[in-house]
Write a protein that binds this DNA or RNA. Structure first.
Length: 512
RNA sequence: CGGGCUGUGGCGCAGUCUGGUAGCGCGCCUGCAUGGGGUGCAGGAGGCCGUGGGUUCGAAUCCCGCCAGCCCGACCA
């Protein structure tokens, strides 16, 4: 008999973090690689998480006045030529459509080959992002200051031809949301950029239970063509930073390139100020790496496709049906009479006819927050056996069914909060402040997991690039002391590069 | 786009050096047992060995071409 495995996932996080990540994606049955390199098949459990992320964000976008629309997948090449900096930023990862038909041709061996034919006069690019197409539409739609602000969002897929794909974190095709807005003044557009930045930070905190460092990107790290890029940077368990959401103030750069102009209040023609902001399926990768453990995925209840999984324990043929009936009845009661965070509970009865242990471990690996076991003995005693994903897998609490029905929203809240608090503590433990370049360089001289560092910084791009390159680190952002805050209220200290006193800080880390 | 490696049932691999037309583990299916747990036993299905050519009586194995993928460096939500 083989030795009992302690953990469901091998290797463990500490043994080999990247491999652990891949194994969790697979064990939790979230996604798999497709036959097309770099593309992924998102399976129901992974897509279910995305749907919950989507619906929650969508609600928040609408609450802040945005409307959804949909723009074409294909972008005329000429559009990308309009804004040089933007185009160059994406040039190396564009898929290009050059033909519009296939012709069946027999080759020497007699096999039928489909050969591209019907070459296009102007090739199309599969959108790596939609600034240009949406800009063209805005140019048509906006005539007067009365048409502003224009607040649009689209849920779409985009394609960036990546050399090194990893499921959810970096794939050639991914799903995302891109908001695009146009405003009358710089102030309004900047306020929009900050607002959406805050929406992201709030969403990550409230739903994904992930704390972030919020702030502004340096010029080197900015979105191509943007004047200001705001980011929320999440810390995952190997201490790397991951950009979980960005919002950009694009100034009048895109308006100029695409003629997004309007008649102002004074009757003069002027250029709009535009923004864009987005999050992608990368959030799922972030979620996995932030909360997962050596038994697999751990989902915050807010984004768990099944918050409660009921596992019937039906050892004997004569009690099986009664147990199953009781499980389904409880599920119906939970779904129809209980709610949490404004939504009905998501309950699954796993009544597949298979070994119970295997089933239980599947749900542990999938990260379902609560497991309930109901067996023949519980029918008599009117109890349920409650197990939680945030507790050791052997731990069981037998509760009266009625008591559980009362307590269940509270338990979900406790799990959600517990995950948040653990993540905050982890972030605090792994963030330090250093005040000299030498200390920074010593700190990042190793290759392994290394804590994040804050330093006083008002250095220029060249110094930043030099430090980054030598240590495989980057300035993730110039953090604010709190998300949504625009002033940088850090105490004045000498910059580690220039020596001049500054109240700004740079956040240094290795990144995904 | 530069450097190293690998292509064998759904997945992970052995077999290749020393040619004799396929094997292991997991998974899958069936049956029996088990039953608050990652189960046991028995039986079974599934492979033109990446691809094209060559050498040979005979090629997964040797030779040549091609294709695809993986890992390491520059780019990245």
């Amino acid at each position: 008999m083989p030795a009992k495995e302690k953990n469901a996932i091998s290797p463990t996080r500490s043994e080999d973090f990247p491999e652990w990540y891949q194994q969790v994606v697979r064990a939790a049955d979230m996604a798999e690689n497709s036959e097309v390199r770099g593309c992924m098949v998102i399976k129901p459990w992974g897509y279910g998480v995305w749907e919950l992320i989507q619906s929650e964000l969508d609600r928040r976008f609408k609450e802040t006045g945005h409307q959804n629309a949909y723009f074409p997948l294909l972008i005329p090449l000429s559009y990308l030529e309009k804004e040089a900096e933007h185009a160059e930023g994406f040039a190396t990862e564009c898929a290009v459509v050059t033909h519009h038909r296939l012709e069946a041709v027999k080759d020497e061996s007699g096999a039928t080959r489909m050969v591209p034919s019907g070459e296009l006069a102007e090739p199309y690019v599969i959108r790596p992002t939609s600034e240009t197409v949406i800009g063209a539409a805005f140019s048509r739609w906006i005539e007067s200051y009365r048409d502003l602000p224009l607040l649009i969002n689209q849920w779409a897929n985009v394609m960036r031809w990546e050399m090194r794909p990893r499921l959810f974190l970096r794939t050639a095709e991914f799903l995302w949301q891109e908001g695009h807005t146009a405003h009358e003044t710089r102030e309004e557009a900047e306020a929009e950029t900050r607002l959406m930045h805050k929406v992201y930070a709030d969403f990550l905190r409230e739903c994904l239970a992930i704390p972030v460092m919020a702030g502004e990107k340096t010029e080197n790290e900015r979105f191509p063509g943007a004047e200001m890029t705001l980011t929320v940077e999440a810390m995952v368990q190997d201490l790397k930073a991951i950009q979980a959401g960005t919002s950009h103030y694009l100034g009048q750069n895109f308006a100029k390139a695409q003629d997004i102009s309007f008649s102002g209040r004074d009757g003069n023609r002027q250029l709009a100020h535009t923004t864009s902001w987005g999050v992608s399926t990368r959030l799922i990768g972030t979620l996995i790496m932030a909360h997962g453990d050596d038994d697999g995925l751990v989902l915050p209840p807010r984004v768990a496709p099944s918050q409660i999984v009921i596992l019937p324990v039906a050892p004997k043929e004569d009690t099986r049906q009664a147990v199953l009936d009781s499980c389904h009845a409880l599920a119906t009661t939970l779904r129809s009479t209980r709610s949490w965070c404004g939504a009905p509970l998501r309950v699954t009865v796993d009544d597949r006819d298979m070994n119970g242990g295997v089933k239980k471990w599947e749900w542990i690996k999938k990260g379902a927050p609560i497991r309930l076991e109901i067996g023949p003995r519980d029918l008599e005693s009117r109890k349920v056996c409650v197990q939680r994903r945030d507790r050791p897998h052997q731990e069981k609490a037998f509760m009266d069914k009625e008591e559980f029905l009362q307590e269940v929203p509270g338990i979900l809240g406790e799990i959600q909060n517990g995950m948040w608090e653990r993540a905050v503590a982890f972030q605090q433990e792994n963030l330090i402040e250093l005040e000299s370049l030498a200390d920074l360089e010593t700190h990042f001289s190793n290759e392994g997991a290394t804590r994040w560092v804050l330093t006083p910084w008002d250095g220029d791009s060249e110094r930043e690039a030099a430090i980054s390159k030598g240590h495989r680190i980057s300035i993730r952002c110039m953090p604010w002391t709190a998300a949504g805050e625009s002033e940088r209220a850090w105490p004045e200290k000498p910059c580690i590069a220039s020596g001049k006193p500054t109240s700004r800080r740079a956040l240094w880390a290795r990144a995904y």
